[in-house]
Design a protein around this nucleic acid. Structure first.
Length: 334
DNA sequence: CCTGACAGCCCGGGAGAAACCA
DNA sequence: TGGTTTCTCCCGGGCTGTCAGG
């Protein structure tokens, strides 16, 4: 049934993108100065998840690369490389400058110096989930590197700009922001039918069922493709030659939680215990949470560290915290 | 009570210098 | 002298205590 699993993966970048012409054009135009040897201001892409931000960024840069003689580029997910050091390291990797820089024992900010000394072809860097970056001042440092162009991606505008500080904010306020809206059902359906054409054998799923998937995904292409992938896998396991509606319906919850599950899998034992407690209770106050945590784990960390973990979990959108001070409760995100 | 901000400690580990050895 | 081992220093990151403020 599945003829090409790659096209059902979330990272897959299609050769052509649909329903995002305006966004692609705007981004292309913004990046065009690069072809003339100038380096454009940073560009911001923002919008909810699964609306094609990452995809369009990579797609456009790739297309630009084909039209410019020489161009270096690098994609960094700031959720993974959240520290200043990791992001810089990743950026140096993009231009092969890490050879003699090692994970430790490099003098402070030698990485940044190294990046500053860069004098190769234009360098376009995509900083995805940039609001997760711990030290936002890095953006300011990067901004000042002449040949470096930033494409910044975040969910919401405010979350990115609020913590930047006036210095950077005023500099960046003039640059382009591209807003991404959720896909409509018909857009999702057509994206899905492409994937079906590329990745599944023919006649395994009809339009009505694609509609159903689109409907359940509520504008999020990543979820839609996830549902399709899971449904195809399930049908394949059961030796079905078509994907029935029943399978689709069954697979929706797991497809939806899949993205969150990835995050959960990467938690440490301690963070995981905290997460489990909160989801079990649904809602819990800090004291009770810590007590419960202490009983469940052999070598409990201090209360202080638990608080660090909790802010991380909130950051990851795995839990939410309500009330700023006395009377705070933690609860699971629905 | 609880939080966020901050400072400081310790650990692992890499690098370069120093010490050691044949 | 040249090669090898040890020492020392530095860094990032995990962790903790403190403290003002709600």
């Amino acid at each position: 049934m599945i003829t090409d699993a790659r096209v059902l993966q979330p990272e897959f970048i299609p050769r052509e993108v649909k329903h995002r012409d305006a966004e692609v054009n705007t981004l292309s135009t913004d990046l065009r100065p690069i072809t003339g040897g100038h380096s454009p201001d940073p560009v911001f892409l923002y919008g909810p998840s699964g609306v094609g931000k990452t995809c369009i960024a990579q797609f456009t840069v790739e297309r630009l690369r084909q039209s410019v003689v020489e161009l270096n580029h690098q994609y960094v997910n700031c959720w993974e490389d959240y520290s200043r050091f990791k992001t810089l390291y990743s950026l140096l990797e993009g231009i092969d400058r890490t050879l003699d820089v090692h994970r430790q024992s490099t003098p402070k900010d030698v990485l940044l110096d190294r990046l500053r000394d860069y004098d190769g072809p234009p360098y376009v860097v995509i900083l995805d989930e940039v609001d997760q970056l711990e030290d936002k001042s890095l953006l300011y440092d990067l901004y000042r590197i002449p040949d470096l162009t930033m494409v910044l991606i975040a969910n919401r505008e405010v979350e990115l700009f609020a913590p930047l500080g006036d210095r950077l904010n005023s500099r960046l306020s003039t640059s382009t922001r591209i807003h991404f809206r959720p896909y409509s059902n018909s857009e999702l359906t057509s994206i899905l039918s492409d994937r079906v054409r590329w990745g599944l054998s023919s006649n395994v799923i009809d339009d009505d069922r694609l509609q159903l998937i689109a409907d359940r995904a509520s504008g999020d292409a990543r979820v839609a493709i996830g549902i399709l992938r899971n449904a195809a896998l399930r049908a394949q396991e059961n030796n079905l030659h078509k994907i029935p509606e029943r399978v689709i319906r069954n697979v929706v919850p797991e497809a939806k939680s899949e993205i969150q599950q990835k995050t959960i899998d990467r938690l440490t034992t301690h963070q995981r215990v905290l997460y489990d407690i909160i989801t079990e209770y649904g809602e819990i106050d800090p004291q009770m949470l810590y007590d419960e945590y202490e009983t469940r784990i052999d070598d409990p960390k201090t209360n202080r560290m638990v608080r660090n973990y909790l802010t991380k979990l909130v950051h990851y959108n795995l839990i939410e915290a309500e009330g700023n001070t006395k009377g705070r409760v933690y609860r699971a995100t629905e």
